[in-house]
């Protein structure tokens, strides 16, 4: 029995100069591989996915991310660490967002290590299982922690997974929506199995990430999100 809340951490980098008119495929094939100079941006923002859940089989967070990453054509340029670290590029307006997806161990005993993973991230995806009320409770705990200890302005998205099993649903969509609204988060019901709403979930996050501030990042376009302090200054008095 593993009572756990597995976590993913996603990092986002973004590309400027994306022209939708040329078609995404053509554009994306031209994206240089990490870590090449412009237009790849230094990833300074993270997206952190948390999912709630109270059972050993999991609520499908791996499936969500794997589906998201693998359904598309850029997995060949993505360095991965098994199912723990993945990257994925999503177009958003005239930018490209490169998600750097960090998984984190969800076991309760590793809970205290979580801040190391979510520090400096731009967004978090918190996943629960619509067929498990428990997982929704766990989710709320994570939201609370993120609000208190997470980076400022973190974009939160709530994903109710397994919407293909809505007949054994325990968490009503209305509850989730109300809750999400109360905390200002994106909410989507997904099905990793049937690839429902997965793309939409990440596009929703992309839209919420503040656009590039051209005067601040004028020449290199690096985004500086949710990271008020540089890593080096962390250890300073």
């Amino acid at each position: 029995m593993r009572n756990q809340a597995p976590q993913y951490v996603l990092h986002v980098s973004r590309f400027r100069h994306y022209h939708p008119g040329h078609g995404p495929t053509a554009q994306w094939e031209n994206i240089p591989t990490f870590p090449v100079k412009c237009p790849v941006l230094v990833p300074k923002a993270h997206t952190w996915c948390v999912r709630g859940g109270g059972e050993d089989t999991g609520v499908g967070k791996s499936s969500i991310v794997c589906r998201f990453v693998q359904d598309h054509f850029d997995h060949n340029i993505s360095p991965t660490i098994g199912a723990s670290f993945m990257t994925k590029t999503v177009p958003c307006g005239n930018e490209l967002h490169k998600f750097l997806i960090w998984d984190t161990a969800g076991q309760e005993r590793f809970h205290s290590l979580a801040p190391m993973y979510y520090r400096g991230s731009a967004a978090a995806v918190i996943v629960y299982d619509i067929t498990k009320q428990d997982s929704f409770h766990t989710l709320k705990k994570w939201v609370k922690e993120l609000k208190e200890h997470g980076p400022e302005n973190i974009v939160m998205a709530i994903a109710g997974n397994k919407c293909d099993l809505s007949d054994i649903r325990e968490v009503p969509l209305k509850d989730a929506k109300e809750y999400a609204e109360s905390i200002g988060a994106i909410v989507v019901e997904t099905s990793a199995k049937n690839a429902i709403n997965i793309e939409e979930l990440f596009q929703g996050i992309s839209r919420q990430i503040p656009p590039l501030d051209s005067h601040e990042n004028g020449n290199n376009g690096a985004i500086k999100l949710g990271k008020p302090t540089a890593p080096a200054s962390r250890r300073c008095c």
């Binding site: 597995p6 993913y8 098994g82 199912a83 723990s84 998984d103 161990a105 076991q107």
Partner: peptide
Amino acid sequence: EHKLPMDDLLP
């Protein structure tokens, strides 16, 4: 072939 999620990788 097995892709390790963090739950397994960290321990």
